[in-house]
Amino acid sequence: MGQFELTVGDIITICGTFSFAVSGAFAAMQKRLDVFGVLIIAFATSVGGGTLRDILLGDVPVFWLKNANYSLLILVTAIVAMIFWKKIKSLKITLFLFDSLGLGFFTVVGLQKGLAYDLSPGICVALGTVTGCFGGITRDILLNNIPLIFRKEIYATACIIGGLVYLLLSYLNVDATIVKVVSVSVVFLIRIIAVKYKLTLPRIY
């Protein structure tokens, strides 16, 4: 990021990092982890997807090693979450909302990076899905939970649909900022609607 010059992409990355840091911190607090444990889970949730994305692309050092501001943002966010968690009526709802936001933000970030590397549209959507989902997978594995992506909830599907919306709107030459905002919103709303109305993928058992 330049000096006080933030692009829309930078803002989306910052929002995604913040959202997943809150998600990770609250998930860790649900498990009654100590302060260090909360910080580790917040960090792993925030950078997990982006780290895997950058490794797959050969873009090393990975993004959070190039810019220490992301680590600082995660640290501050996790500390603030720990300070104010008692004022939150439902950790579960807060965790769900921030996880859904982070999912949307990082799906767009990953897809954009794939496009910047001139990858095919399908691979870009897959890269966006990996970026959005892997932080949550890392969080759940570290907390000894079955990752959401492996349950019947609509999770990765929301990323895929959001990625397809991004590509469609870009093809139609819609303003880039609108494309990003709409795509993030689509992922977020699909998660909200799916959980609210108990929508699931077909079961094979």
Rank of each mutant, 00 (worst) to 15 (best):
S23E: 04
I146Y: 12
T157R: 06
M29G: 00
R139V: 14
V76Y: 01
F106K: 10
G104Y: 11
D34R: 01
T131L: 09
R151D: 02
G132R: 03
K87L: 14
D140N: 09
I11D: 06
T94Q: 11
K86S: 12
I154M: 14
K31M: 09
G163W: 12
T177A: 07
C159A: 14
Y155Q: 07
A27R: 09
T129M: 10
F43Y: 15
S90V: 07
I137N: 10
F96N: 10
P61R: 02
V187L: 02
I74M: 01
V195A: 13
K92A: 14
M1G: 06
I161L: 14
C124D: 03
F18E: 01
L91N: 07
G2Y: 10
A78V: 09
T200A: 11
V62G: 06
Y155F: 14
I123G: 01
V130D: 01
G102T: 00
T51F: 08
G104S: 11
G122W: 01
I14Y: 14
K92C: 03
G114I: 10
V8P: 00
D10P: 08
I161K: 08
L72Y: 15
R203P: 00
D59A: 08
K113L: 03
T131V: 15
L167P: 00
T94K: 03
I123H: 03
P121S: 01
G58D: 06
K31E: 11
T107H: 04
V35Q: 02
I161P: 04
G50N: 05
Q3M: 05
I137E: 12
G16N: 10
T94N: 09
I160Y: 13
L75K: 10
S46Q: 07
S71K: 01
Y117A: 11
W85Y: 12
A68I: 14
V165T: 13
V22R: 02
V179R: 10
V186S: 05
V184Y: 00
I193P: 00
F150Y: 13
V80Q: 03
V187P: 13
G122Q: 05
V109Q: 11
F96H: 07
I141K: 02
L169P: 04
I149N: 03
T94W: 12
I178A: 08
L167Q: 07
V38M: 04
Y197R: 09
L72A: 13
T200D: 04
L57S: 00
D34F: 02
L73Y: 01
K180L: 04
A44D: 04
L143P: 06
L119C: 02
I149W: 00
G49I: 05
V60R: 01
E153V: 08
F26I: 15
R151T: 15
G9N: 12
Y166K: 15
L169Y: 05
A28P: 08
A27E: 06
G122R: 00
Y155V: 02
Q112W: 03
L148N: 06
V186F: 05
G128W: 12
G135T: 06
